[in-house]
């Protein structure tokens, strides 16, 4: 038998409050927002900012060679890259604002950007 007796009315209220808090934080913190453009960087500088409305493949030069970035159905992925371990290619399609794929060896990155960018820079 479950020990239900020790739970009092206030406990249930606190439990409910906790569930509401978690729901609220999840909804506010985990929604990436709708992305409307992709920012492509090469060697730390912005290579181009592309709207997601048109399907296309963009070739970005880096120190190791050419990275190919594909835009398809408002999603972006790195289709090909000369980096040895292919981490950024394996990351697959980026869908929401704030998502980012970085090919470190070739110094190429693509970031999904929405209307409201939550922070401009990160410092370590």
């Amino acid at each position: 038998m479950l020990p239900l007796a020790p739970i009092k009315i206030g406990d249930w209220m606190v439990l409910l409050l906790g569930v509401l808090c978690i729901t609220w934080t999840t909804v506010t913190l985990w929604q990436g927002g709708v992305a409307d453009k992709a920012i492509i960087r090469s060697s730390g500088k912005i290579f181009s900012e592309v709207p997601l409305s048109r399907n296309q493949i963009i070739s970005v030069p880096g120190p190791l060679g050419i990275s190919r970035i594909a835009i398809h159905n408002r999603q972006v992925r790195i289709a090909a890259d000369p980096s040895p371990r292919q981490y950024c290619v394996h990351q697959g399609w980026l869908k929401q604002a704030g998502e980012i794929a970085i090919c470190l060896p070739n110094q190429v990155s693509v970031e999904m950007s929405g209307r409201g960018k939550r922070y401009d820079s990160l410092n370590y």
């Binding site: 020990p3 020790p6 739970i7 439990l15 906790g18 569930v19 978690i22 999840t26 913190l29």
Partner: peptide
């Protein structure tokens, strides 16, 4: 901040379970 919902869920779950165990013992 992305981790907050995960930690908060764990806190609620384990907090409730620990509280129940303590309440059961005290009862």
């Amino acid at each position: 901040a992305y981790l907050i919902p995960i930690f908060a869920t764990a806190a609620l779950l384990f907090g409730t379970v620990n509280g129940l165990i303590a309440a059961h013992y005290l009862n």
